[in-house]
């Protein structure tokens, strides 16, 4: 079963990630721009990717944790010192980005809208 966790901002993300034991369970983090009052994100690429990623994750029959991470509003993300950009474990350059925690698998931008590629996050490495 996919366990969904919502994390708001870097501090919440960091606290959660530091406490994780990735050996126990596969963890996927999805980083997206905060939603505006009208319910859609300020980041148009995130708006496009979100329904595809969410549908994909809801249909996934795997025992994984899916962490949905809100990186913040536009000024927070556009700041080049944004901790999501500087954390050496993340080094995010683009939102949306989806990563396998402690793995090399990562999809950026429009790659997140491709179900073919999302499936690869759950295949054996080789």
């Amino acid at each position: 079963m996919v366990t969904k966790v919502d994390l708001n901002g870097y501090d919440e993300f960091k606290r959660y990630a530091d406490a994780l034991d990735p050996k126990r369970k596969k963890v996927i983090f999805y980083f997206s721009g905060t939603k505006l009052d009208n319910g859609t994100s300020w980041c148009p690429d995130c708006v496009e990717a979100e329904p595809i990623v969410k549908t994909f994750m809801s249909q996934l029959k795997k025992d994984v944790i899916f962490g949905y991470v809100d990186v913040g509003d536009r000024p927070t993300w556009k700041d080049m010192n944004c901790p999501f950009r500087t954390d050496p474990r993340l080094k995010l350059m683009v939102i949306p980005t989806i990563v396998v925690w402690k793995g090399v698998q990562r999809l950026e931008g429009s790659q997140c809208t491709k179900v073919d590629l999302l499936q690869m996050l759950f295949e054996d490495d080789d």
Partner: peptide
Amino acid sequence: QNHIKSVNWVTRVDLRD
């Protein structure tokens, strides 16, 4: 090795894409 593994991954994504 981490760099190599991430290149392996990007290559596989590229092929699938």
